[in-house]
């Protein structure tokens, strides 16, 4: 059986909020190392991969591999009943028909209990190899969100160009064009506000802004986001959590 207690329900709330507009139904794969999820969007252009390590739970117990097939809309409805600071306990049997969720406030004088019906989801898993990317950019997640939102007003796609000292986001559309250039800089007082670039070779790739705007719904998970780019490889957009991550992979546009 699965029994996993999360100190802050807000973590799961934010994870689900981050991915629910990209995928509707998905398996939460539970085993002794933690809870993971991999799913593609309907058009197979983007893929989300989420991991919550057992270290993020206390206690965590899962003796066998259990796949929890969940409709994320249903899970969102139930998680709305949890405060961010509530303690959340997930429970499921070995071959479960439902997932049990208990929310307790920090004073422990209120507890709410919900069960969500599970579904059988036949999901294909893709093997994602370790990749040495040509460029890795770390920037504030709020900054990335603003750039994607602003450029999406002008165009369907954005070109991301990483060079040694800067990263440029540019687009062109019917009403005109726009670009945002971020220079590598270190903010010693507020490290989360820094922009860092690790470059093996310069790279320039074009991506759909619709998906990037969607990925930015994960901004609440982390103050920074990491973009990893290589020519003719999907973009990796990673939000790190205390004991896990949400990663998005986005296939590039071609013929640019």
């Amino acid at each position: 059986m699965l029994e996993a207690r999360l100190e802050q329900a807000g973590v799961l709330k934010k994870v689900v909020e981050a991915i629910k507009d990209l995928v509707q139904d998905c398996n939460f794969d539970c085993n002794d190392s933690g809870i993971a999820l991999q799913a593609m969007d309907n058009s197979h252009v983007a893929l989300v991969s989420m991991s919550l390590s057992h270290e993020g739970f206390s206690p965590y117990r899962c003796d066998r591999n259990i796949a929890l097939g969940i409709n994320l809309n249903s899970l969102t409805k139930v998680l709305r009943a949890a405060q961010n600071e509530d303690i959340l306990t997930l429970k499921a049997a070995d071959s479960p028909d439902s997932l049990n969720l208990v929310f307790e406030n920090t004073e422990r004088d209120r507890s709410s209990e919900y069960d969500i019906k599970l579904m059988d989801i036949d999901q294909e898993h893709l093997g994602i190899p370790d990749t040495d990317y040509s460029a890795t950019v770390v920037l504030p997640s709020a900054e990335f969100q603003r750039i994607c939102r602003d450029l999406s007003q002008l165009s369907e796609s954005v070109t991301i160009e990483a060079s040694k000292s800067s990263v440029k986001f540019s687009c062109s559309g019917d009403i005109g064009n726009g670009s945002v250039n971020l220079r590598q800089h270190q903010d010693l007082e507020k490290p989360d506000q820094s922009t860092s670039i690790e470059l093996v070779e310069p790279v320039s790739l074009t991506f759909s802004l619709k998906y990037l705007v969607n990925f930015c719904k994960a901004s609440a998970l982390s103050p920074t986001v990491k973009l990893s780019l290589s020519t003719d490889v999907p973009l990796l957009v990673e939000y790190k959590m205390e004991a896990g991550y949400v990663r998005f992979y986005l296939a590039p546009k071609i013929g640019d």
Binding site: V45, L126, P129, S157, P234, A251, K253
Partner: peptide, 14 residues
């Protein structure tokens, strides 16, 4: 319009 590739073109089924 710029053509869009799919994730399956890069990563294969496990």
């Amino acid at each position: 319009r710029i053509p869009q590739k799919q994730i399956n073109d890069y990563y294969k089924k496990k």
